[in-house]
């Protein structure tokens, strides 16, 4: 027993915090979504969400946005990570800073930046106006495009780091071997690097998807009240209308949606590892 003494003392405070401040609140929240005030199991709040076309539209918008944000991040992030893994030391440092600086800057600040860039007389609309593509007073704010532009910048670092982690463990000699076996550069990318990087891209996609679907700060500030997302609606209900059971029910729906994505992924990952 003495050999458990030190480990228990070391891990107890952290474990206690995790149980009391993580497991307990999340569990309570979920139970509140499906248990009525009398304590009986009830799905009223869930049906309220699923039968209201307004909320269904919110849900669909959330899904659509999260998908595009994650997909665009993968398209940009995967090649970016490959270059990062294979380029010289100095360029690498520049790229690392380009990824970590935004990652470590508060999302509130970054979103503010996008508000300036996309808003009326901002950088992008002004340029488009100068090119004669849009009329005066054009603004990208309060559009789904704005949400996608802003959110991709928020989640892209996660995609890059997740793919980078996998590519760094990929032996560069595999590519050289492919070249000696007759592949040209692009073929070696497609036949050797892409399959090797796939687990990282998938993980990154899921991470970006789940972040985008559950984030409310950037979508609320860039999309405004006309384009509510699920997370934004949860925030509204939790802090403004104070309808907690409904906020909890929406969280359950959010979690279930994400789990539907994660479960096949983790099953596939498990079978891949044997």
């Amino acid at each position: 027993m003495t050999r458990y003494l030190q480990p228990l003392i070391l891990i107890a405070p952290g474990l206690l915090i995790m149980c009391l401040a993580f497991v307990l609140p999340v569990g309570l929240m979920f139970s509140l979504g499906i248990v009525s005030e009398e304590g009986a199991l009830n799905a009223d709040q869930l049906t309220r969400f699923l039968s209201d076309p307004y909320y269904l539209k919110v849900g669909l918008r959330t899904l659509r946005l999260a998908f595009w944000i994650a997909a665009i991040s993968a398209l940009i992030g995967a090649p970016f990570a490959y270059v990062m893994a294979r380029c010289g030391k100095r360029l690498r440092l520049v790229l690392i800073i380009a990824v970590t600086l935004p990652l470590m800057t508060s999302v509130v600040v970054r979103t503010f930046g996008w508000m300036v860039v996309l808003g009326r007389s901002g950088l992008v609309p002004d340029t488009l106006y100068a090119l004669g593509l849009v009329r005066r007073n054009f603004s990208l704010m309060q559009t789904e495009t704005a949400i996608v532009v802003g959110m991709v910048q928020v989640v892209l670092p996660f995609m890059v780091l997740s793919v980078l982690g996998v590519i760094q463990r990929l032996d560069p000699r595999l590519e050289e071997a492919a070249r000696t076996m007759g592949c040209n550069f692009l073929q070696s990318l497609r036949r050797v690097v892409l399959p090797g990087a796939m687990p990282g891209i998938l993980t990154g996609f899921l991470l970006c998807f789940s972040l985008s679907a559950s984030y409310f700060i950037t979508p609320t500030l860039l999309g405004g009240a006309r384009l509510p997302t699920l997370a934004g609606s949860i925030y509204e209900n939790a802090t403004k209308t104070l309808d907690w059971p409904f906020a909890a029910a929406q969280s359950i729906i959010l979690m279930c949606g994400l789990l539907l994505l994660f479960i096949p992924y983790s099953l596939a990952a498990r079978s891949r590892h044997g």
Partner: peptide, 22 residues
Amino acid sequence: GLFLAPLILPSIILALGLLMLW
């Protein structure tokens, strides 16, 4: 796994849970 779970679980869920519990 429990210790690393907050990395995966959306923080909005933790936030709502904490608000309700507290």
